[in-house]
């Protein structure tokens, strides 16, 4: 990551990784609460989660260097994070405790994680329950069964970003 125009190896910056890792763990706990599942039964591979966070930071750095020193917007960050979580699969539940969740906990987390950003920045799409349920189902199915690249995931979430951006710019 870049701080004051100096590249810092994320491996050497553990407090940042820990803070981000804790935030993801908090969201995972909330997801378990929403599903009435005991968080104590979820295992987290912290080495993989660290890899996820470093890969997201590297992508952020890419935008900073090659795109006018901009940082990625919230939807892009959530999409890239979700892509790597779905690919590296750092969360685990025993099939003896919950067979369905043991297969899909990482996809479910990605849907929930992307939804947290929708809830904060484009809440009207969550409030439209018919729309949201169908969108979330399609997203979950695609993450499980289709080949979704991180660019594809970014494009899927871009309409929500543009909608929120449009609301902000028209209200100014």
């Amino acid at each position: 990551m870049i701080k004051n125009n100096v590249y810092i190896d994320p491996e050497q910056d553990d407090p940042v990784i820990k803070e981000k890792s804790d935030a993801i763990e908090f969201v995972l706990k909330q997801m378990c609460i929403a599903r009435d599942f005991d968080f104590a039964n979820v295992s987290i591979n912290r080495a993989l989660l660290r890899d996820v966070l470093i890969r997201v930071d590297k992508r952020d750095d890419y935008f900073y260097i090659f795109h006018e020193r901009t940082h990625i917007n919230e939807y892009k960050r959530a999409s890239i994070t979700s892509f790597w979580i779905n690919k590296l699969r750092p969360f685990w539940v025993s099939d003896k405790i919950d067979e369905n969740l043991s297969k899909h906990i990482n996809e479910h987390f990605c849907v929930f994680y992307l939804s947290t950003i929708m809830q904060k920045l484009s809440p009207e799409y969550i409030a439209d329950v018919y729309f949201y349920k169908n969108f979330a189902d399609e997203l979950r199915y695609s993450l499980t069964n289709r080949d979704i690249s991180q660019e594809a995931l970014i494009v899927i979430m871009t309409p929500f970003y543009l909608s929120a951006l449009s609301s902000i710019e028209t209200s100014c």
Binding site: E19, K20, A23, I24, F26, V27, Q30, M31, I33, A34, R35, D36, E74, R77, A78, N100, H108, V111, F112, Y113, S115, T116, I117, M118, Q119, K120, L121, I126, V129, Y132, K133, A136, D137, R140
Partner: peptide, 27 residues
């Protein structure tokens, strides 16, 4: 900050849309 947004969003989803979330996350 992004991480605060996700935490706040997660709490709101749990309190405002728990039934919807439970249905989606149980499939």
């Amino acid at each position: 900050p992004f991480d605060i947004l996700t935490k706040q969003g997660a709490e709101e989803l749990c309190t405002k849309y728990k039934d919807v979330m439970k249905e989606i996350l149980s499939k």
